[in-house]
Simulated scan of single mutants.
Amino acid sequence: MKSDKTELLQGTLDMLILKALQLDAMHGFGLSQRLRQMSAEVFQVEMGSLYPALCRLEKKGWIKGKWGVSEANRRARYYSLTAAGRRQFETEKSHWALLSNTVNTMLDAT
């Protein structure tokens, strides 16, 4: 059965969240929208996947959250990247480059 959804590889969501937070602190819904925009609508990250990832990243010290008020005048938790998160993003980005280049090389092999 064909699925219209494009699934993220395990572990890539964390890296993409770190990337999205490089620009500015965001609340969960805004972050979901940013990820969708960054992927040209290919990835649609559901809240059921996003919030556990945010909790995981916060627990690791890569992001920090604080309560604020959203544009809709609602209480929202805003997440921002920590210095450790910036370093982790660079590590993840390097690892991704190696992995994707290796897979592409294997796929192009005859």
Rank of each mutant, 00 (worst) to 15 (best):
S94T: 11
V42K: 11
A25Y: 03
L21I: 03
G48V: 08
A72N: 15
K64R: 15
S39N: 03
L99V: 12
R87Y: 05
S39R: 04
V45Q: 06
E41S: 13
G85M: 04
K59R: 14
Y78I: 02
R87G: 11
T6M: 07
Q22K: 14
A25I: 05
H27S: 02
V42P: 01
K2P: 15
K60T: 01
K2G: 11
A25F: 04
R75P: 06
W62Q: 06
R77I: 06
K2H: 12
M26R: 14
G30D: 14
A53Y: 04
M15Q: 10
L35A: 01
H95Y: 05
Q44H: 10
M38I: 06
E58K: 02
H95L: 12
S32M: 09
F89D: 02
E41L: 09
H27N: 13
M1I: 08
W96G: 01
Q10N: 14
R86S: 13
V103E: 05
N101G: 15
M38S: 09
H95E: 14
L57I: 08
G11W: 08
L9E: 12
G68H: 04
S94G: 10
R87V: 11
Q33L: 10
A76I: 06
G68W: 04
F89A: 02
R87Q: 13
A109D: 10
G11E: 03
M106K: 05
L8Y: 03
A25H: 03
Q22N: 07
R36V: 00
L18K: 05
D4R: 08
G85E: 05
R56A: 03
Y78C: 06
R34I: 02
M38Q: 13
L21Y: 11
I63F: 06
Q10S: 15
A84Y: 03
L23A: 15
Q10P: 13
E41N: 14
Y78G: 03
S3F: 06
A97F: 00
L57N: 03
T105Y: 14
I17P: 00
Q37Y: 14
L99I: 08
T102R: 09
E71H: 09
R75A: 12
S80Q: 14
G85L: 04
A83E: 10
D108T: 07
D108I: 01
P52D: 08
W67P: 00
R86D: 09
W62S: 00
K60E: 10
L107Y: 05
G61W: 06
E92Y: 12
I17N: 01
E90C: 06
E41R: 09
L18N: 04
K5A: 12
L50T: 06
W62V: 00
M26P: 00
N104F: 12
L81D: 07
L99G: 00
V42T: 13
E7V: 10
E41T: 04
K60R: 10
R86E: 14
R87S: 13
L23W: 13
L81N: 07
H27T: 01
A83C: 00
G85C: 05
A20F: 02
Q88F: 07
F29P: 05
S32E: 12
R36N: 08
K2F: 15
E41A: 12
D4I: 01
T110P: 12
G85Q: 03
R75S: 15
A76E: 14
D24F: 07
G11A: 03
A40V: 10
L13D: 10
